[in-house]
Each structure stands twice: as C-alpha cells, then as structure tokens.
Design a binder for these strands. Structure first.
Lengths: 340, 340
DNA sequence: GCGGGATGTAGAAACGTTTCCAGACAGAGT
DNA sequence: ACTCTGTCTGGAAACGTTTCTACATCCCGC
C-alpha cells in the first residue's frame, strides 16, 4: 500500500504532527529534524493524500473551469493562462464543457459542491433562472468571465465590450464604410449586447442609422459566419463591411468568399473579435478587436483564490480594455455609388 | 454550515449507520425508517460529502481524461461519449489538455495519484521514457485510446489503423490514382505508423512503389495540411491524390486549394481520417475513414471502471474496425499523361 | 536564579463518511 | 422450547491528514 504520514512518523521516530509540519514548511521544526524526515520522505517517495487533507481543510485544492464552447480558442487561451496561475498558487485546474446546456452547467456546479472543490471559473453561461438561482446560494467561490449576470452579483472579469464594439465600428467608419453589418451570437449575453450598443453608438455618432436588417444573430462559430456570408453574397445590397461577433465567425466569412473567388478585403472588409490564434492562420490575417485572454485568465485565477481567503468581501468586477489590431481583412471603402 | 450525516441522524433519531444505508440504498432498512430519513434528507437538502466518502473508500469518484490535442474534434467526440457513460456509472468526468507536453502529462498523472481520482482515460500520448516509466508504476486504472505503447502493457481501445490506412489507399487506387501521397503527423505514435503500413501495403499490392518523397510528416492540424498543400501546388509533380492523417489536415488542404481557385476533387483527390464533425462542414464534404469515436469513448469508460473492480485481470486491447465514408473530396483520376 | 517569550515536539481530537461488529427481534424448522 | 437464519439497527473503528493543546527546553533581561 501507499505510505502514509504515520509510516513516515514511525520510521523517523517522530510524531505525525512533526511530519506534517515538514510537509507544509511550517517553520517550527529544527533543521536536523527536518532533514531527517525529509530524507525519509524522499526515499519512500511519500506523497500526502490530498483527500484526507481536503477533508480536514474543508476543500480540495482543485478549481474547475466550466466553459460553454470548446471550439472558441479565446476561451482555451483564457483557461490556459488561468491554469498556469492556479498551478502556481497550488491548485489543480480541470476543465468541463457544457455546450451551453444549462442542465450540464447545473450538474457540474453540483459536482463542485459535493466534491468540495475549491472554486469555479466559469466562462460564459446564458443567464437562465436556474443558473442565477443556483449561483446565489453556492457555497464556493465562483468567478465569471466574459459576461456578467444582471440579476446576481458575482466576481467577474470582463472585456469592455461596449468599447470593443465601438472601436470596431469606428475603424470601419474611418475607412469610409457607411453600410456596416454586425453579425453576432444569440442575444442572451451581456457581451453581445454591449458590443452591439458600442457599434450602434459609433454609427449614430457618424450620423448613420443602423437598420434592422443590418444586425444578424446566429451561431458564433465558423459555420455561422459562413452561412451569413453566403446569404450576403446572394443578396449583396450595399453592405461593404462586417463587424463579426468573434474571429471564428470572421473566418467562416473569409472561407465563403474564398470559395467563390471573391477577395477580402477588396470585396468586403471584416473585423473580428477576440484576436484568438485563428485570427492569424490562413492567408488573410484578420483585423480584430483583441481581448486580453491571458491577462483575463490570470486575473480570474487570482480572483477565485482571493475570494477563498476573504469570503465576505464585496464582489468585484474587473474590466480589461480591448484594442484594435489592424491586419489584412479591412481596407478603405471603394464603393461610392450608393446613397449614404 | 452544510448539514452532515450526523445532523440527519440526530434529527431523525437514528444512527449514522442507518442514514448511510438509506443514502446508499442498502436494503437492510425498513420501509418506514427509510421514508422518515429520506424525508429529512430531502427537506434539509443534505448531500453527502464526497471527500469524506473518498477518504474511506480510498478513491474519489472522478475520472480524468487527459488529452493531447484540444483542436481535434475526434477526441472531443470520444471524450463526450466517455463522459456520458461515466456519468451513468456514477463518476464525474473532467478534462485536462497536455498539448503533447510530457511534463504536463506527468503533472496530471501525479495529480490523479495525489487526489485519489478513480482512473484515467488518456487520449494520445507520445511514448516517452518518462511516460512508460510512470505508467508502469501507477496505482490507478488507466486506459489508453487511439495508440498503444509498445513497452508497457495497458488497457487500450483502438481503431484498426492498419486497416484504415489500407482502405484509404485502396479507395484511391480503385479510382485509378497511381501517385498517392500520404501526409501524416510525427512518427512517434503507433496510430501513424500503422496507418502508414496499411497505405504502403495497399500500394505494393497494386504493384506500386511508395517513394520517399511521397510520405510527408508534419503537424496533424489544419495548418499542417495547408502548408503541405502549398508545397505541392508549387511543385506539383504527378501526385493526383492524398491520404491525410486526419480530417483537420485534409481541411487545410481544401482551404489552400480553394484560395488558389483550384478544385477539389478535380485537381486533387483527398481522403481524410476520423470522420470528425468538420468532415462535413464547408463546401467540399470529405471522403474519410470513420473512426467510431462514440463507441470508443463508451468502451474506454467501461474499461476503466471495469478495471477498478478487477485490479489484476490481464490487460485488454479492444479494436474497432474503421470504415470508409465516401463523399465529395475524391473522384476518378483524370490524369493519364505521366508514367504511373 | 527566575519569570517569560520563542522555539521545538508529541498526543489527541477533528473532519464526514463507510463498514465492521454486535445485538435485538421475528419467524421458521426441528 | 430451541436453535437458526434473516432482517433491522446502533456503536465505534477506520480512512490520512491538519491543528489544537500541552509540555519541554532554551535564551534573555532583570
């Protein structure tokens, strides 16, 4: 069987307490004692049992990241940074995908409770009544990222999506575009809504009106962008630029145009969102709005362990400012024929 | 604080043992007692603490899936099926990505040991000395999938990759192709090697010789396929068909050709591998070799819990037979000019 | 030479379950 | 009437840690 702390205690002639102290780097151990015990630990290959530790401490040193969408590399990047930070802080990070299914979300949150995991970093969750109901009575730290809930205060780390939407539209306007579409995801997240507002305000500021037909909502994946692009190609109108809800969608647009021999940015200017790795794969590098994925991930990690120590501090919202990254998918508007 | 089994015992006037019995559906509880206790459990919202349970049972009911590659949807599919099965069997499934980094792999395996997780399903791992060394002394059940290790016997569920390579090449040969390239991943997995063998044997059977220059090894991702396709386009030779190591790679080839206005399958026939979801997204649906991802996932799940019960049974290797799925990326060879 | 704060160590309780053991009771077979 | 077997229940040990309490010892300043 695996060696326990008692075995080490017996072998070294010391008590469990003392062995525990050397394991946990408690200063109240003499140099000789520490050396002797450490020697035995090393030669035995003893590793403390985290389950027992978890029982007395009241929590396992495991943080679960619950993510809606496994295709979005922005989340992957965010998680990877969070994991790195969590490891440094002594926690194991594991991943669960919900596929945006509220039932799965609930299942995972329940599992966290039952297993006394230390906390949760949750990346995107549509705001369902169950979720808000659950969140409000959860006993462990949870930090949301990317979107916040209007009905429940939580710790959250965000991008300033309003500003992101604003600079995306602003950039296209500066290039002379006048009819700018916005393709995004379902309307159930603050992230999407805030970006939309930013886009609308930029348009209005330029004296342009956003028409109903200019904003399309679909799935935030490559297929979504692909489909919308096909729809636009069939019925071009005078749209000369598109602001996409994320880079995956933007990629889908590029593919649809490439397949028909149309040129980006000549035939259409595209701004993505996220600046995820796929923004720079493929021939046309995307102009996009960079979210600071790694910084957000690290911040979320720090926030979640911070809350473990201070259970009752007020909830905090940390907002990162996105920035425009100009690459090859946008260019000055060449169409001058239409009105507006 | 959260209710414990003792609180329930006190409230119901019964002992902890009895409460435990109703929680675990032990038959030795009278109907009335069970009803009364269950009532209290329900009204209290009591949930047993898995950590305490894990301590006495010697393991947490958590299975970790360790996956090398988060981009490959075939693995995602496999994991999703495994998770489903594991949930049915009473286990929580969580995910860790190694990015093919042996150090991360080791870290996760260590975490499994320290946290007494119930077992591991590991999807792809390059066979490093550390890994084999670690695996041979692990105390928990582990089942490998997709590739097996030559130096350590383990439980493993596989696709018959040799046969997969064979039918892929055979299909292209049947379409009249003679110069068929094979683009795959690094040579460190049995999966790649077996597919290569199958492809070579099919070629030889047809009286054709595989030349060194026909087999390229790169990264098994879209970028890998894209790069190889570019290389081929620059220097076409007489290759008319390609058998790709997986669907992502095949997709990359399609994109490269589309961007240059070349037609698939007219200019190049492509066979992928996996039949992952991306095989049917995009305009050209891929001809590919289907691996039975969901069946493999479920099998892996069953295998891992099976081994928990029977620690000393001999290791098993379960092989699924892949099948060719013919779609739009392959067509009869039209080039008849060159010798072979 | 004596109280008093560090420093070092051991023993035992505690964490929340499961499970082993023992005992009570009932009905059935002799 | 008696064992015997099966059903039901409670008490307590066990799982492997951390941590609380208690007790030495030492050195310091008086």
């Amino acid at each position: 069987m695996k060696a326990t702390i008692k075995d080490i205690a017996k072998k070294s002639g010391h008590s469990c307490s003392t062995v525990s102290r050397v394991i946990n780097n408690n200063p109240y151990v003499s140099a000789e004692t520490r050396a002797r015990i450490q020697g035995i630990i090393d030669e035995t290959g003893f590793r403390p049992n985290n389950v027992a530790r978890g029982l007395v401490k009241g929590k396992m040193n495991v943080v679960v990241c619950i993510i809606g969408d496994r295709f979005n590399q922005f989340y992957a990047e965010l998680f990877s940074a969070a994991e790195e930070a969590l490891n440094e802080l002594g926690y194991l990070a594991v991943l669960c995908y919900t596929n945006y299914d509220p039932a799965k979300e609930e299942k995972y949150l329940e599992a966290v409770t039952e297993n006394n995991f230390a906390g949760v970093i949750m990346v995107t969750a549509p705001e369902t009544p169950q979720l808000t109901n659950n969140l409000s009575k959860l006993a462990f730290p949870i930090v949301l990222t990317n979107r916040y809930l209007v009905s429940v205060p939580t710790d959250v780390v965000l991008t300033d999506n309003y500003y992101g939407g604003y600079i995306a539209a602003r950039h296209l306007l500066d290039l002379g575009h006048r009819r700018i579409a916005h393709w995004s995801g379902p309307d159930n997240s603050t992230a999407s809504r805030d970006r939309l507002r930013g886009y609308c305000d930029a348009m209005q500021e330029a004296g342009l009106q956003v028409r109903d037909g200019d904003v399309w909502k679909g799935n935030l994946q490559e297929t979504g962008g692909y489909q919308f692009a096909c729809r636009l190609l069939e019925n071009p109108g005078d749209v000369t630029a598109v602001f996409c809800g994320n880079d995956m969608m933007a990629r889908g647009v590029v593919v649809a145009y490439a397949e028909r021999g149309r040129k980006i940015p000549d035939d259409l200017s595209i701004v993505g969102f996220d600046d995820s790795p796929i923004a720079v794969t493929g021939t046309v590098k995307l102009t996009t709005v960079r979210q600071h994925a790694r910084e957000m991930g690290r911040a979320a990690a720090e926030m979640v362990v911070n809350r473990m120590a201070n259970k009752d501090q007020p909830h905090r919202r940390l907002t990162f400012t996105p920035e425009l990254v100009i690459r090859e998918s946008t260019a000055a508007c060449r169409r001058t024929d239409g009105p507006l």
